[in-house]
Amino acid sequence: MDIQRLKPGRRMSQAVIHNGTVYLAGQIGAPGEDIAAQVRAILATIDDLLAQAGTDRSRLLQATIWLANITDYDVMNRIWEDWIGDSPAPARATAQAQLARADWKVEIIVTAALR
């Protein structure tokens, strides 16, 4: 089976497609923005990458969400739930983690099925 890479770079590809599944790299927002702005930016990027792969959020299989501060959980969830809307919710895990940069507040990783 062929492997397709979207926006490949030296360190990583933003998405990898294989065997009817698209795997997105961890997405982050603009450093220094507040949690709400970072989450909204990440979800917009996820929508864009999923569209480039030929799928959308209704086909999400799994999401992993890393928060720099777990106290941002409720804010992130409100934005996430608005974004998911009527789409089926994926399997999801959320945890607090020390992210690679102090001004990143959240990182989201998703996996989705292709159409």
Score class of each variant (00 low, 15 high):
residue 45 T to R: 04
residue 46 I to K: 00
residue 47 D to H: 06
residue 47 D to K: 06
residue 47 D to P: 07
residue 49 L to F: 11
residue 50 L to W: 01
residue 50 L to V: 08
residue 50 L to E: 03
residue 51 A to F: 13
residue 51 A to I: 12
residue 51 A to D: 09
residue 52 Q to W: 05
residue 52 Q to V: 02
residue 52 Q to L: 04
residue 53 A to E: 04
residue 53 A to N: 02
residue 54 G to C: 09
residue 54 G to M: 08
residue 54 G to K: 09
residue 54 G to R: 06
residue 55 T to V: 08
residue 55 T to M: 05
residue 55 T to N: 08
residue 55 T to I: 05
residue 55 T to H: 05
residue 56 D to P: 03
residue 56 D to Q: 08
residue 57 R to Y: 03
residue 57 R to T: 08
residue 57 R to F: 07
residue 58 S to D: 10
residue 58 S to T: 14
residue 58 S to W: 01
residue 59 R to K: 14
residue 59 R to G: 05
residue 59 R to Q: 12
residue 60 L to E: 11
residue 63 A to W: 01
residue 63 A to N: 03
residue 63 A to D: 04
residue 64 T to F: 12
residue 65 I to N: 01
residue 65 I to E: 03
residue 66 W to G: 10
residue 66 W to Q: 15
residue 66 W to M: 13
residue 67 L to V: 03
residue 69 N to L: 15
residue 70 I to D: 11
residue 70 I to N: 14
residue 71 T to V: 08
residue 72 D to E: 10
residue 72 D to T: 06
residue 72 D to S: 07
residue 73 Y to R: 13
residue 75 V to F: 03
residue 76 M to D: 01
residue 76 M to H: 02
residue 76 M to F: 00
residue 76 M to W: 02
residue 76 M to A: 07
residue 76 M to V: 09
residue 77 N to V: 10
residue 77 N to P: 15
residue 78 R to H: 01
residue 78 R to Y: 00
residue 79 I to N: 03
residue 79 I to W: 01
residue 80 W to M: 05
residue 81 E to Y: 04
residue 82 D to E: 12
residue 82 D to W: 01
residue 82 D to V: 02
residue 83 W to L: 04
residue 83 W to M: 06
residue 84 I to H: 13
residue 86 D to S: 12
residue 87 S to C: 10
residue 87 S to D: 14
residue 87 S to Y: 13
residue 87 S to L: 04
residue 87 S to A: 15
residue 88 P to W: 12
residue 89 A to R: 13
residue 90 P to G: 09
residue 91 A to D: 06
residue 92 R to A: 15
residue 92 R to K: 15
residue 93 A to D: 04
residue 95 A to Y: 15
residue 95 A to M: 13
residue 96 Q to A: 13
residue 97 A to V: 07
residue 98 Q to F: 01
residue 99 L to Y: 09
residue 99 L to C: 12
residue 99 L to H: 12
residue 100 A to M: 11
residue 100 A to N: 02
residue 100 A to Q: 04
residue 101 R to K: 10
residue 101 R to S: 06
residue 102 A to D: 14
residue 103 D to H: 07
residue 103 D to N: 12
residue 103 D to P: 10
residue 103 D to V: 04
residue 104 W to D: 05
residue 104 W to T: 03
residue 104 W to M: 03
residue 105 K to Y: 01
residue 105 K to C: 12
residue 106 V to H: 02
residue 106 V to P: 00
residue 106 V to D: 02
residue 106 V to Y: 01
residue 107 E to D: 13
residue 107 E to S: 13
residue 108 I to E: 05
residue 108 I to M: 07
residue 108 I to H: 10
residue 108 I to V: 07
residue 109 I to Y: 09
residue 111 T to Y: 01
residue 111 T to A: 07
residue 112 A to K: 03
